[in-house]
Write a protein that binds this DNA or RNA. Structure first.
Lengths: 208, 208
DNA sequence: AGTAGAGTCGAGCAATTACTCGGGTTCTGC
DNA sequence: GCAGAACCCGAGTAATTGCTCGACTCTACT
């Protein structure tokens, strides 16, 4: 969240040489670690620069302010998430695929996505309120997955859903909510049982 | 999140007279509004005192630090939530009650709970990481509701669930996750349809 | 070799902010 | 009516932190 008002004076450089591209990457890496460890407020830019082994001045050559670091990390994570999910969806959302298998594949993809770096994930998508642009990107990904799901539901004989769009939306949101909670709070040795249960929840819903 | 290290020097006064009890109430009210409007980091104690129409000195007579304000608000909200949910649960979780009615009542109770002040709710339970004591309180409430639910499931003839405890836990988490998203992102005119769909999700899961 | 500009550096500035403290005001019990 | 306690006040302090800017080094190109 932008606690301070944005200054946004001089537009920043694009890194042109290999050297500086490396610097930017190192800074982002460090930012991810620091934010994950300390949270957004206590993750100071000086600390990030120090962790990156780079001067604070160098950091501000490429990022106009602290928020920009966060937004860059958000967009990277969203892109990664989109890749993982659309891969899973395209692979499994074909008319012939059995319901149970579809549900399980998606649940597992979602768990993978969330379990990467939980602390960072929390900071990026909970601690701060998302800027509008990022919020739109996130909504777009969700909508894309939901649309694929709806098309699948419409073409599947076993599925009895009066409104496939709504059913798809409910499923996507359910998976997201449950896996989120599971990853944050769950015991690792219960994960398998929970996955099976989530699959039952989804298939039960769609075939009733 | 405690960005600064806790000082926690002098223990604070208890309000004894009516006058000061009123002051404390006004401060908490103002804190709720300010945190909701600006978030935790930008919600400064001076601003809170100003909004409350009280000196910053008075605020620190009763709250040892900024975090204490937040914790007080959290605990108040948890208590309110527990009251709403246990009321709903006791009213409806009797062996004879039809499944659909139970599900609908709980979903609506949860929606009521979340729709009170969404911005404040976000700050209290997402923006900051909860201190252990609060986390325990929250877990206790969830466990209590889950236990009531499990008992109900066990005694209901329609319900086909191999493991009632796990089913209860899945349901509670599902309702929580879905209503949360619904309240945050949903269009008001879709709420009714969504509630019906959530009920179908739950009943389908339990009777398959 | 010379030079323009990309890249790096880090001391320090400006602003913010949680919290204190000494002193004044109001209440309460005797 | 008075002492002491409870309450209230707000200017000031100490510390933090985002970010700048002028000096320096490296790279690429002629």
């Amino acid at each position: 969240m932008p606690a301070r008002r944005q200054k946004q004076l001089r537009p920043r450089k694009q890194p042109r040489q290999e050297r500086s591209r490396e610097t930017v990457a190192v800074i982002l890496e460090a930012a991810a670690r620091i934010f994950a460890e300390h949270g957004y407020a206590a993750g100071t830019t000086n600390r990030i620069a120090a962790r990156a082994g780079v001067s604070i001045g160098s950091l501000y050559e490429y990022f106009p302010n602290k928020d920009a670091l966060l937004v860059a990390l958000m967009e990277a994570h969203i892109a990664e998430g989109q890749a993982i999910l659309t891969d899973a969806a395209r692979e499994v959302l074909v008319p012939a695929a059995p319901l149970r298998q579809v549900a399980e594949r998606l649940v597992r993809a979602m768990i993978d996505l969330h379990s990467g770096d939980r602390a960072l994930h929390r900071v990026l998508f909970e601690e701060v309120q998302l800027p509008p642009r990022v919020r739109r990107q996130l909504a777009a990904v969700e909508q894309q997955i939901t649309a694929l799901m709806a098309a699948y539901l419409r073409g599947h004989p076993e599925v009895r859903a009066p409104n496939p769009e709504m059913a798809a939306s409910v499923i996507v949101q359910t998976i997201e909510g449950l896996t989120h909670k599971l990853v944050i709070h769950g015991e690792p040795d219960e994960t398998e049982a929970q996955v099976k249960e989530f699959v039952r929840l989804i298939t039960g819903y769609l075939t009733t």
